[in-house]
Nucleic acid binder design. Structure first.
Lengths: 135, 135
DNA sequence: CAAGAACCTTAGAATCGTTCTAAGTATTTG
DNA sequence: CAAATACTTAGAACGATTCTAAGGTTCTTG
């Protein structure tokens, strides 16, 4: 322990996941530093540059597991490609359609009034606001 | 002309598209009757039941052309599947995550306040609100 | 209305992102 | 430290969508 990096071993274990070399390597890339948006491909490219490269299948598995464990949030903004967001708190997104960039913005300032009640027999899961812009 | 069905020939031409047999058949399925949400597969299945069946490739081409022409709106709510909405006016969506159903709701009642300004050098394209619910 | 030009449709192949399979490897448990 | 369990992997498989190239349709022009 150098003392300056979070211990992903414990957070993974807390999420019910074995802290394997691969998952720890991915957690480091994802969660060290500020909030990130990644795709499976982009994360795979990043982790390949590491001392602990990980197969693409494991990147997919891990993203899904982290999402299921609440460590990541999946954002669907464009057909045929999933983004994962390390920010799991309440917030919304700008999506720059012309180049596929995604940016967070806090939901604190945003008020949504007048939403209709959910259809019979359903309960609210989440409200996504996607502000689409172009360059 | 029987006089009781809209003339898709003129609307297609107005959109800069030749009114081919296939496009007219698809327009009929899409735009006769109330607003619809379709996927390429579901529309293909519907049009196959018609006197003018259309290949799947043409269904994809046509959906994209209609979307580009502003006749349809593409809604991305779930990874790996695109919905097209015949309602191109201002409105938002309920998405029932547990069974893939999509429902419109008017944006008239809904007020969104406090949205941040678009990032430098971009202009607003659209604001999507997706209310995700589960059964 | 004929003929050419432009455009459209099609089946099937190709591609893309993602998931599955089966075999080997790491981690945990007793 | 051995058995039990879970994980990783390369490559195959998959589902949705796009491409290709060949033939058919629609439009324009005279």
């Amino acid at each position: 322990m150098t003392g300056n990096s979070p211990d992903f071993t414990v957070s993974l274990r807390a999420a019910g996941l074995r802290p394997t070399r691969q998952r720890v390597a991915l957690a480091r890339v994802l969660f060290e530093g500020g909030h990130r948006h990644v795709t499976a491909e982009s994360l795979h490219a990043e982790v390949k540059a590491t001392r602990m490269p990980v197969s693409l299948a494991t990147v997919y598995n891990t993203l899904n597991q982290f999402r299921d464990a609440g460590l990541l949030r999946e954002v669907v903004v464009a057909p045929g490609r999933s983004y994962f967001d390390t920010n799991t708190g309440h917030h919304h997104h700008f999506f720059v359609e012309t180049d596929g960039e995604l940016h967070d913005f806090p939901s604190d300032e945003v008020t949504i009034a007048g939403l209709p009640a959910p259809p019979e027999g359903t309960k609210l899961s989440r409200v996504d606001v996607i502000v689409r812009v172009r360059r």
